[in-house]
C-alpha cells in the first residue's frame, strides 16, 4: 500500500456561508483573537435581482511544493510524509519569511507566542484518530471532505477522479492539495486594496 497523502475537497455548491468551520477551528485549535487559521471569504457578484454570494472557505492548502518550507531559514516548517505542512513552534524564530512567501496568506504570527502559525488540517487530532479535521466534521451541509488522495478507494479520491475540481491560484506552482468544486475564480481573486472586511 502506498503512503498516505492527505487532501481536502470543498464542494462550494453545498457551502451556505455559515462560518461554522471558522468557529469550530477557533475552538479546537485555541486560535487567539484577531487571527484565523481558517475563514470564509465572501464575495457578492452581480446586482439585484441577479445576484449571488460566493463563499470560499480558506485555509492552508498543504501544498506539494510549498514556498513556505523553501524559504524558512531554520527549517521550522516542513512537509510531513503525509503531505501536511507542519510548524515546529519551538524552532520558529518568527521572522515572517514564510508569510511573505505564501500566495494564500494563510500564515500569521501568533500574538503571544510570537511564532508563525497556520492551519495543519488538525494534525494532532487526526493523528490521535479522533476523525477528520473539525471544520469538515462540523460542516452542516457536508461541503467539506478530508481524506487520503493516495488511496484510490477513498471517497475524496473517487470524487476527484470523476468531478472537475480546481485549486486556488494554480499559477503559484505550489501544487496546493485543497480542491474546490463550483469555484468562481474571478470572485475568489477579488481583493480590496484597503483590506475589505465587515
Amino acid at each position: 500500500m502506498s503512503r498516505t497523502r492527505y487532501g481536502f475537497l470543498i464542494d462550494l455548491r453545498k457551502c451556505i456561508g455559515c462560518r461554522t468551520c471558522q468557529v469550530a477551528c477557533k475552538v479546537e485549535n485555541d486560535v487567539p483573537l484577531g487571527v484565523y487559521r481558517t475563514w470564509v471569504k465572501q464575495v457578492e457578484k452581480g446586482t439585484y435581482p441577479n445576484v449571488r454570494d460566493h463563499f470560499f472557505p480558506i485555509f492552508c492548502n498543504q501544498c506539494e511544493r510549498p514556498a513556505c518550507t523553501q524559504v524558512c531559514p531554520v527549517e521550522a516548517t516542513y512537509s510531513m510524509d503525509n503531505g501536511i505542512v507542519y510548524i515546529d513552534p519551538h524552532r520558529c524564530i518568527g521572522c515572517g519569511y514564510c508569510m511573505a512567501a505564501c500566495p494564500y496568506s494563510v500564515r500569521f504570527i501568533h500574538p503571544t507566542r510570537k511564532v508563525a502559525e497556520k492551519c495543519d488540517w488538525c494534525w494532532p487530532r487526526v493523528r490521535e484518530g479522533h476523525g477528520p479535521p473539525v471544520c469538515a466534521t462540523n460542516c452542516p451541509t457536508g461541503a467539506m471532505m478530508f481524506g487520503d488522495l493516495a488511496d484510490p478507494k477513498s471517497q475524496i479520491a473517487r470524487i476527484l477522479a470523476r468531478e472537475s475540481a480546481v485549486v486556488m491560484k494554480p499559477e503559484s506552482g505550489n501544487k496546493p492539495q485543497t480542491f474546490y468544486i463550483g469555484f468562481d475564480d474571478e470572485a475568489a481573486r477579488h481583493v480590496d486594496v484597503d483590506g475589505g472586511h465587515l
Binding site: 487571527v35 471569504k41 465572501q42 464575495v43 457578492e44 454570494d53 465587515l198
Partner: peptide, 11 residues
C-alpha cells in the same frame, strides 16, 4: 460587478 463582503485582512 462584484463586492468583497468579508475576508481576513492580511498580516
Amino acid at each position: 460587478e462584484s463586492v468583497l463582503l468579508y475576508t481576513v485582512p492580511k498580516a
